[in-house]
């Protein structure tokens, strides 16, 4: 094995790590906001709000992220004059924001379902008890609903976070030079696909492992039985 080459490769690819992280963090934050909005819309009880939210979730969960990305980047690129008139072009001109938008819109759909599941898991008895104790709605939300729902939703949401970190690799397809983009460029120059992709894989693996550990730690802190356990 050519260790010198592997080392150079790893160092070069690590240069794309900041961009990978930026893409992941921006889209997770934006997507989280979107998810909350979608959940509220679906829970609003008004058909005018809940129907569009449900249609949104249906479309974004029913189609591949890659095609959503192409649609936003190349598809909307066709409407430059209109977007310019609306003053939106400086946003859509930038591949970074197109990638973030596609990923955020995608994760918002999945995350809203996860949040909905978490809220649905709160036993009605707990709500009744809270009301009976005289808790006001806001206090009830903060003290009873959210802790219970978050604890329930966390494992599924951590999966979604990992999927998002991995999804940043698709940004390479619209000219972003993050880890996978740099890997493609290196392969085009050296033709050594296996070693380079293996190095890139290692970087993602490390990222997702760290993320998994962090979420496990959070789960342990939130868990009711933590006095007896130790973090995994």
């Amino acid at each position: 094995m050519d260790f010198a080459f592997l080392q150079t490769t790893l160092l070069t690819l690590l240069g794309g790590l900041p961009l990978t992280l930026e893409l992941a963090v921006s889209s997770i934050l934006l997507g989280g906001g979107g998810a909350l909005m979608l959940t509220l819309m679906q829970a609003s009880g008004s058909l005018l709000l809940s129907a569009p939210a449900r249609a949104y979730v249906f479309v974004f969960r029913g189609t591949p992220l890659l095609i959503q990305l192409f649609m936003i980047y190349y598809g909307l690129g066709q409407f430059r004059p209109t977007l310019q008139e609306l003053g939106l072009w400086s946003f859509f001109r930038d591949p970074y924001w197109c990638a973030v938008l596609a990923m955020a819109m995608n994760t918002a759909a999945y995350a809203s379902e996860i949040i909905r599941g978490g809220l649905g898991s709160v036993p009605p008895g707990a709500l009744e008890a809270a009301t009976a104790c005289g808790m006001r709605p806001l206090l009830r939300l903060r003290r009873v609903i959210l802790p219970l729902a978050i604890r329930q939703a966390l494992p599924a949401y951590s999966n979604e976070l990992i999927l998002m970190v991995k999804a940043t690799s698709l940004a390479s397809i619209i000219t972003m030079m993050e880890v996978t983009g740099l890997a493609s460029k290196m392969i085009a120059e050296t033709y050594r696909s296996i070693e380079i992709f293996a190095c890139a894989g290692l970087i993602y693996l490390a990222l997702t492992l760290i993320l998994t550990r962090a979420v496990l730690l959070l789960e342990w802190r939130l868990s009711t039985t933590r006095k007896n356990g130790t973090p995994a």
């Binding site: 190349y74 066709q78 072009w89 001109r93 000219t175």
Partner: peptide, 11 residues
């Protein structure tokens, strides 16, 4: 083809 599309889109 993709860079042609982006040229036409003005990116």
């Amino acid at each position: 083809e993709q860079h042609d599309l982006d040229l036409q889109a003005g990116r």
